[in-house]
Design a binder for these strands. Sequence first.
DNA 1: TTCCTAATTGCGAATTATTCTCAACTGCGA
DNA 2: TCGCAGTTGAGAATAATTCGCAATTAGGAA
Lengths: 147, 147
Amino acid sequence: MTHSRDELLKQLRVRGARLTIQRRLVLDILLDGNDHLSVQDIQAQVTQRGADLTETTVYRILQWLKNLGFVSQTDLGQRGVVYELIGSPRHHHLICLNCGGVIEVGDGLFEELRDHVRRDYDFEPRIDHMAIFGLCQDCGNQNISGE
Amino acid sequence: MTHSRDELLKQLRVRGARLTIQRRLVLDILLDGNDHLSVQDIQAQVTQRGADLTETTVYRILQWLKNLGFVSQTDLGQRGVVYELIGSPRHHHLICLNCGGVIEVGDGLFEELRDHVRRDYDFEPRIDHMAIFGLCQDCGNQNISGE
DNA sequence: TTCCTAATTGCGAATTATTCTCAACTGCGA
DNA sequence: TCGCAGTTGAGAATAATTCGCAATTAGGAA
Ligand SMILES: [Mn+2]
Ligand SMILES: [Mn+2]
Ligand SMILES: [Zn+2]
Ligand SMILES: [Zn+2]
């Protein structure tokens, strides 16, 4: 499940952050649309709710939430950069280079990798919302030319 | 080891690609500097060799090599997007979000993940040159503030 | 409740990275 | 050697993100 709104706000308050209406708005949009949202998507939502934030502000708030570890920022390739609240448990995606299809996968896939990295390199990986590119079942069977 | 120049050219010829002087030049630069090269890095090398390619052309050649599966394109975060010939065996990197340190790791780390993805999702992942972000040993011990 | 101030936002320009268009050029098969 | 589809050059265009600074405001202190 995802963070609840109240829990989220509480955690932010604890960290001494100012809860401006702009920040609440972006948080609400992220909480509602439990989806991949681009900056434009978020701006559209802002407008739809009768509000109005600068692009700059949206970028700044997303950056802030990302640095705090509440939001993931992921480049989905063709589909560009998207933001999403990091739920628990986390999830990740397989993205087909040919058809663009996006498959959601659980975090289990990455548990071994995480452990290995920790053990072998004493490195604490932040694998929050990975995009793995490749060829899906359908496209893998066709023979894809390089160009 | 890395692809040899001749082997590489042969493979490209087989695929019916035109081996222009521009393409040879970029290939040679990639072969020599066995390193992460940004587009600017490559342009600098081009100049250093007394030649002169447009940025556009460099982008196009890199895109072409990437699509053919010979070159990886990786976003290293702070350090931007870099290109590198995909060697065999492949390697990947751990990148510290705090100090920016880059650790090279072998491909073994990803073998399990690859198998899982193939088995569980019938998806052929192209894990050529991954960047895993997180905190290195030194930085993990300090307490990092969110901002 | 009011006041104060550091944190945050708005605005618009700047920067950066990448792509596009189209005319000129050229690698390579016939 | 010729012809042309594929490739490059040039420079503008587009898209994404960041910057600088003045105006605003959240939230603690009085
Ligand atoms: Mn997702
Ligand atoms: Mn590398
Ligand atoms: Zn596909
Ligand atoms: Zn570090």
